[in-house]
């Protein structure tokens, strides 16, 4: 993979993304593979945070890519591929949530805990600091508070912080005006503050030190 056409976090730059989309529109499987590889982990993380179910996440991600590539011929080059993909992914997440609530399904918290323990294994010295027991408790508390947010607020927070999208881009994904996105972000932050201001409030100073050091 040509790293020079990717940003530091593995994301494709605009020119390279455009080139790959055009090649994929012509049926180039290599370009299609690169497009998928560049977006699969980001979409997977977003969908997993929305659904919290490994099986559903895999299914939704695959369906999102299939739909995106099925309609690739009509792709509007004024938008980023990720915006389009996350738009499809978000709609599929909402459908899945609706279906799950209709069928009385539940989130697999056991799998979540097991996965978190496995993926949180420290890989180097700086990670070891961030993954101390105290930091892990706080991260769990934060993600727990994120899970308690309503779907639009959760999606807004994830796209804003993780995907670093602007309110305008988030509005395109969630199909709502940018002002509404700002409102969701404001309410989400207020809810996070409210949910996290209890027992863990005294530990914020240490966490601030750790995250700033990382």
């Amino acid at each position: 993979m040509n790293q020079s056409n990717e940003t530091g976090d593995g994301r494709l730059d605009f020119t390279e993304e455009r080139r790959l989309i055009k090649a994929a529109q012509g049926g180039c499987a290599v370009s299609a593979h690169r497009l998928i590889s560049a977006h699969q982990d980001r979409l997977h993380a977003f969908v997993w945070r929305m659904l919290r179910n490994e099986h559903d996440t895999d299914e939704v991600c695959q369906e999102a890519f299939l739909r995106a590539f099925g309609a690739l011929a009509g792709f509007d080059f004024n938008y980023r591929f990720s915006t389009w993909l996350f738009t499809i992914g978000y709609r599929l997440c909402l459908n899945q949530m609706r279906r799950r609530s209709d069928h009385g399904g539940s989130i697999d918290f056991a799998a979540i805990s097991a996965t978190r323990r496995e993926t949180d294994a420290p890989t180097d010295a700086s990670e070891a600091v961030a993954n101390s027991d105290q930091a892990r408790q706080l991260k769990d508390a934060i993600w727990g508070a994120v899970d308690d947010l309503a779907p639009p607020q959760r999606a807004t927070v994830l796209l804003f912080y993780r995907e670093q999208m602007s309110c305008q881009e988030i509005g395109e994904v969630l199909k709502m005006p940018a002002a509404t996105v700002k409102s969701h972000l404001h309410r989400a932050r207020a809810k996070l503050r409210e949910n996290l201001s209890g027992s863990v409030a005294e530990q914020w100073a240490d966490v601030r030190f750790n995250t700033e050091a990382g």
């Binding site: 993380a45 978190r116 991260k139 993780r162 670093q164 914020w204």
Partner: peptide, 19 residues
């Protein structure tokens, strides 16, 4: 700080299972 740390964790903590 609380909100700022929340943002830091959400943006940097990639503890989700990967594809």
């Amino acid at each position: 700080d609380m909100v700022r740390v929340c943002g830091n964790v959400i943006s940097r903590d990639q503890s989700e299972p990967r594809a």
